[in-house]
Design a protein around this nucleic acid. Structure first.
Lengths: 182, 182
DNA sequence: GACGAAAGATTAGCTAGCGAAGTACTTTTC
DNA sequence: GAAAAGTACTTCGCTAGCTAATCTTTCGTC
């Protein structure tokens, strides 16, 4: 009980100043005529900075396995689906939010390295099925390991209680966002 | 008091299922041999998705003022500094995290449109000073207005209490991240 | 105070990804 | 059952941004 109380106090203490605090303080005054809210700006800016950090960790994890970020991400979306390691170029392009033309380029490179292969679908010969190879699976798994570490370390700088709160509140935001696009 | 209690209950209620929940459920099993934590994955994935949504709102805000995202962002970093509307190409390139060469290209385009001008520094003639023009300021302010709206709407889907908690917890993460890079 | 090193910006050549057009199939429609 | 419309992927030409090289000016030091 007193432990719980201690935890509460500990969690609720405001952390020291960060880059965003300085940014907000500097910018508060320059928005004359435009609606401005410190708290909104703080949340939005911090989410942006955290996301950028996470992107960087993905890039580093890829580099540690001698992969380009785009190569890692392509293998990744190929693996994290209902049918792991198997998908059409169109599906992958949608997941990666790149064009079909861009996808062809990426797949060409991956195929040349022997990490995926193209097989044509028997039932519909317009379609191509991308299949990850054992070599591709192995290299993806390697990068995956490095990546987890950095994410775990970031999140473990929070108490269990903060982790749960954060997840809950973030989910409110994603639920809102997902309710927007029909 | 009873209102406060109600709010507490309301805030703490788990929101409905989102994309990330489905993603986590689907992927929990496929990580055999790799450390995996639902909560970490949830936080990381949600932050990524929210950041992407925010990026999209910036892009839309820019488009609504007939600006390319890169044009808006360039004007933006030029405006949000200690000396608003005035900076060197190198400083801008650092803020935008693009190369010097890329910066030259962007500035060429903005100068042609009459939104910035290059003046050379009197004290150090290697340096070029980028100055925003009144026309540039006006177009930036326009895009700025649209942008705030979407961000405000997103954040206002949270209670005041959740907003404060979120900001506090995010700040712990940014403090951690900023402690990493020396 | 001269000359090599450094700094700031630009130019040159390259690459990834884009949109639009093209190719090869499949489905719909009359 | 053949023409028209639609779908899946690839090719083509272009653009933005990258690295490396260059040009101009300034700084440091002997």
């Amino acid at each position: 009980m007193s432990l719980a109380k201690f935890r509460l106090d500990y969690d609720d203490a405001m952390p020291p100043e960060d880059w965003t605090d300085r940014h907000v303080a500097r910018w508060r005054d320059h928005w004359s005529g435009i609606a401005y809210d410190d708290e909104v700006e703080g949340i939005v800016t911090r989410i942006g900075r955290i996301a950028r950090y996470l992107d960087r960790t993905v890039k580093d994890a890829a580099a540690a396995s001698d992969l380009q970020e785009s190569e890692y991400k392509t293998l990744h979306v190929l693996m994290i689906r209902d049918t792991p390691g198997s998908a059409s170029p169109t599906e992958l392009a949608e997941d990666l939010r790149i064009s079909g033309a861009g996808m062809t380029g990426r797949l060409d490179a991956l195929e040349k390295k022997g990490w995926i292969k193209r097989v044509s679908a028997i039932d519909d010969r317009r379609r191509v099925i991308i299949q990850i190879t054992p070599k591709g699976t192995e290299i993806w798994r390697g990068a995956m390991g490095n990546r987890g570490t950095a994410e775990d370390e970031l999140v473990s700088s929070l108490s269990a209680r903060d982790r749960a709160s954060l997840n809950r509140i973030l989910k409110k935001l994603t639920v809102y966002i997902e309710s927007l696009d029909t």
